[in-house]
Design a protein around this nucleic acid. Structure first.
Lengths: 250, 250
DNA sequence: CGGCGGCATTGATGCAGATCAATGCTGCGC
DNA sequence: GCGCAGCATTGATCTGCATCAATGCCGCCG
């Protein structure tokens, strides 16, 4: 199931500004991820205008938001939950290129086709924009374009870090870097804790790090045995940050 | 040696518009990579203005254009030659995240620090811009910013392809994809041929593909033995494109 | 509450590619 | 034209992670 094209949505016939069911708040103005997201570049009046073309959606786990190489009909702002972004080979091998957290923007490149597939890992809330409407909105707002560009530059930088990780680091280093990275990202969006939520499966982690599920499991078990981490349901508690940084530091 | 900061250049004291020695042509207007580069988005009058803040430079092989995490004083347009872009780990392991060819822009993200190190593989010609001047130039030219953003989106997409390659493909698949990819890129900039120039060393190729020099060598030798490619000095001739695509197709 | 399905862990074995080690090739300075 | 330095090739061996194969765990549904 895809929510991107066509608009399989109960409010498809209503005017866009009515599409607020599912939104956690009353609009962009008090959106809880606004200050972390591309929208932080916008003035109150611009936010109002954005409200008019935005549509809040809540989707259950495993929902496909869009698929690799499909026409990019929508772009999204993630407001809650985790989204996996991946590329696949014809034979089924998969590489997850990133996990999108609240505040992340999907479709940053503004290209006419999606470069990756996006699936909800757990229950996810997004702010959806029809791409053409969003493009029109961006047009004439160079500060927003600048902000989108900044985000794209940041994504590119993350992608390059991930290349270094995939090409040159050992399994333990990959796991350590992943855990530290997720912790940092959660901290940035206001969730500072030594317990890192990992709503995704071991298979997802393996496909993100270029490993197998068995190697992920074994490596985590070993780190747990060495009291570097504590494995908890749907997450990991980081016990020995120094030791992790020794392996995972960039 | 770095040419980025400070300006180690014989014309450092001259006005910028005089800095044309080393430029292959008379200016942006008849720059041979203009139509492939970000500059294709510019009007003649804008090109003239760009001329005034640009500085053509020719640098020998192995020159460092800029270094990872240094302050980004300049941005560059590559007009000739090949540039390797890489990230390093403290212990010396290296991952090349890309090879920049003529028409490619370095510093696309416009961030205040470089995310990678850039080194000339062979003799390289670049068009250099002081970053602050370039930012000022971009400011008020949303169509150029749009173009830069498009380029960044394309780079991001390439980076994600490379992640899939690094994380999930075998040595032979990596080599095949690399060769086909380089051929396509050379074709796009006007050099259509089954002989792919490879000015970079085996070590560079290995560090790009997440392999060792020995594996690169062995894999190429095997492909040559099977008459899929013919190894020539500083390049490879692709003999059996179908067979290569079987391994390397995305 | 019991059985089933999906995921994770753990163990045994295999192998692609790394590592270690010569040897060969080529271009350049003298 | 000789010798050297740097790169590439080739061969022998090793190993980290994949693969194959149970087994365990837990939530869910009847």
């Amino acid at each position: 199931m895809s929510i991107a094209e066509p608009l399989q949505d109960s409010c498809a016939g209503a005017t866009r500004s009515d599409c607020r069911h599912g939104r956690a708040t009353n609009g962009c103005e008090d959106c809880k991820v606004r200050l972390f997201s591309v929208c932080a570049a916008l003035e109150p009046s611009e936010l109002e205008e954005l409200d008019r073309i935005s549509q809040a959606k809540q989707v259950p786990a495993r929902t496909t938001l869009f698929e690799q190489s499909a026409l990019a009909g929508s772009v999204f702002n993630v407001t809650d939950g985790v989204v996996r972004l991946y590329k696949s080979l014809p034979d089924g091998r998969r590489q997850i290129v990133g996990f999108a957290l609240p505040g992340d923007f999907l479709g940053l490149a503004l290209q006419d086709r999606y470069g990756v597939t996006a699936e909800a890992v757990n229950e996810v809330a997004v702010c959806r924009f029809v791409r053409s409407a969003f493009l029109a909105y961006v047009d004439g707002k160079p500060h927003l374009l600048r902000r989108l560009h900044e985000f794209a530059g940041h994504e590119l930088s993350l992608a390059q870090d991930q290349m270094l990780l995939l090409g040159r680091r050992s399994a333990e280093e990959k796991i350590a870097a992943f855990l530290l990275n997720m912790q940092t990202r959660y901290a940035r969006i206001g969730s500072v804790s030594v317990t890192v939520p990992l709503p995704m499966s071991r298979q997802d982690i393996a496909d993100y790090l270029g490993l197998t599920i068995e190697t992920v499991s074994r490596t985590l078990t070993r780190l747990a045995r060495e009291k570097v981490v504590l494995i908890v349901p749907d997450g990991v508690r980081l016990l020995d940050l120094e030791r992790l940084k020794l392996s995972g530091a960039s």
